[in-house]
Write a protein that binds this DNA or RNA. Structure first.
Lengths: 215, 215, 215, 215
DNA sequence: GATGAATGAGTCTTCATTCAT
DNA sequence: GATGAATGAAGACTCATTCAT
């Protein structure tokens, strides 16, 4: 039992170290040695816990996807007002900067590694879930009377995620300085146009009301 | 086998072969040997024409960027009606499928190679030019009385390019089957919402009028 | 074949094997493969212990310099009579033949590798130390009343080392057969002329007295 | 006939260009391309005139040896007084600095190329000739009553050449700054000791008398 | 359980040499 | 006579993976 516990703990440590190493060297360039060093273990140990580098990389990706989605959902549920939900959701979808570990890992892994159908499916699943979140937020907003949406909600949500993806990618890949603020502005511009809700601005002060207060 | 071609011709051949090899193996994984094989020359010959692999890759990228932009601009100028221009422009921005060589090369090179400021600048420049094209189209549409745009035209154009980017990427990376049609629909949905022009549909029949008739 | 030796031992083996390989192929031509073969290990193993070939070469050189100097000093201290010291010192400074590994390595490395300030400094340091040894011997000889030296002792020592250098080089590079004996005769001729000590002949029988008797 | 002339002229040009290229890159590192560039011809042309690189290198070496010897002999014959002859001879034997093309080429080629019996013999022959020159000078000095030499003249000459060799080499290989002056002082110190001629100093003003005045 | 010494396959790069023109 | 495009052999270096301890 204790043994099992250690096994699992070690694995988790390795996964975390790998995430760090990946964000430093890129998923296509991390070496087993980088990961071992980040974890403070010997190179051989990496293979003791993971079949090979690909195996490890896949698990890191999977785990990162979960974490990303969970964080985001948490942030959305924290707000009661759909306008706040929407703004929070967009903000959570954008990385703070090129060094944002979690977002960077997700974007780069999806793209810098040789094509792999499993990973592609994982990525698509993640996208779908994000779309789901936006759909929910939009419907709540409609119910609350804040949003007036003509287009199919699915489509609007898909476009929101798509915009987010591109701008996140531009931040991660340092395509433009000051991208974060510009991205918020642009996405909210689209959101305003499509919801007819003028309150969707970057500087909106969130309504303090907590939804679903902690039990 | 072929010997004694002239410099420029052989260089161009090598560039084309490299583009092909890249689309097969990915810009981060092509080996000099792949390119040589695709061109039907010896490995050493690649280095006769290009300082090193990076040099070659950069030139392929540069050349692809030019070609992509030119093709697109041609397509836009072919139409007189801004609605046709817009639709054509969007369609040209999306790859036919995962095997679309030109688009794939552009997207993947921007992302699958170790970060390089020069390449990042090139990529940004390309994006800016695309935005410029959309701005032009939108203004023509407004002048023609087809589009009624509330948001700043720059922002709308930026979002159009951003949507295009994400959906193109999803096609390239095989994230979803049937993405091409769906992408057209989604982007045009955004365009309709923001221009108030209901004629912007995937099945619109282009007005036969040629702009700028042959001199 | 041998596995799991400890770091230091294997490093030393590699250094020795490299010295051997260098004396066979010359410092400018040894290949990593030669060294690996001489050591009976795989090519990759050489890089496991040394950053690159230059690194290895430098360490071999450094180590050889130390060894050379130590051997020589030992030989000098073994004798009490300055005449014996001088003769021994000269003899130790000359290689036994073109195959003399240690001397050959030192001479050739200083010269057959692309210029490198560090190595040049190392070489100069070695020369200076040799000069120092000769200065010591000459002063002892003067104190013992054997040598009567008109020129500055520093200059005489410098010339002794210089003569030694050339003749050693001629032996190493097989410039002349029978060079060893001729060199001894020539250098001692110089020594006689400059010290006024007729006892400095190649066939002098060393005084058995040990200096610094075992404690 | 004219053809022959051109052939020979081209060969000579190539030889000169090679000498220059060697002094820049070192005899062990010059590439055919360097030589071609220095000569302003195509790479292929080098092989049109010389069987291979080794062949060319050998001829450069041979030619340099002749030139070196001739220059030196000229300088010696220019003076009538043996003291001036000796000083001039020593000075001519030392390179002006690390960039001295002729001397550098000779020293480095003898040493930086894989051992080759032919080249070794060439080098030995050159040394022997230098020794011969010194022997002549010493005997003239003795005849003029300036030198009083106890040791065999052959040995003294051999040592003079040996000292010269080492110090020249140290200059070429940048082993010590200010080596040229120091070398002159040291070699003349030896010369004074062995000839008993106090007039052999670096600052001696040459007797203007020309020996063998131009016809 | 964990290590790290050792490996060898995989790649890029250099460059003398060849030879069609 | 001369060229320079093209080659291919050679060699250094990287790194995931294995396995004896």
């Amino acid at each position: 039992m204790a043994r099992q516990k250690n096994q699992a703990a070690r694995r988790a440590e390795l996964l975390a170290a790998a995430a760090k190493a990946i964000s430093e060297h890129g998923p296509g360039k991390v070496r087993v040695a980088d990961i071992a060093e980040a974890a403070g273990v010997a190179k051989g140990s990496v293979h003791y816990y993971f079949k090979d580098l690909d195996d490890l990389l896949e698990q890191v990706y999977r785990e990162a996807g979960e974490r990303y989605f969970t964080q985001r959902l948490d942030e959305v549920t924290r707000h009661a007002d759909a306008r706040d939900k929407l703004i929070a959701c967009i903000r959570m979808g954008l990385p703070d900067g090129p060094e944002d570990q979690l977002t960077g890992l997700l974007y780069r892994t999806g793209v810098e590694l040789p094509y792999n159908p499993l990973r592609a499916a994982l990525a698509e699943g993640l996208t779908d879930r994000q779309v789901g979140v936006y759909v929910g937020v939009l419907e709540v907003g409609r119910a609350q009377g804040h949003f007036r949406i003509a287009e199919p909600v699915q489509d609007v949500a898909a476009n929101l995620v798509a915009l987010e993806d591109t701008y996140a990618s531009r931040i991660i890949y340092r395509r433009a300085p000051g991208m974060l603020d510009r991205a918020m502005a642009l996405i909210l511009g689209y959101a305003r146009a499509v919801t007819g809700c003028p309150g969707l601005t970057p500087d909106r002060i969130p309504d303090p009301t907590e939804e679903d207060p902690a039990p």
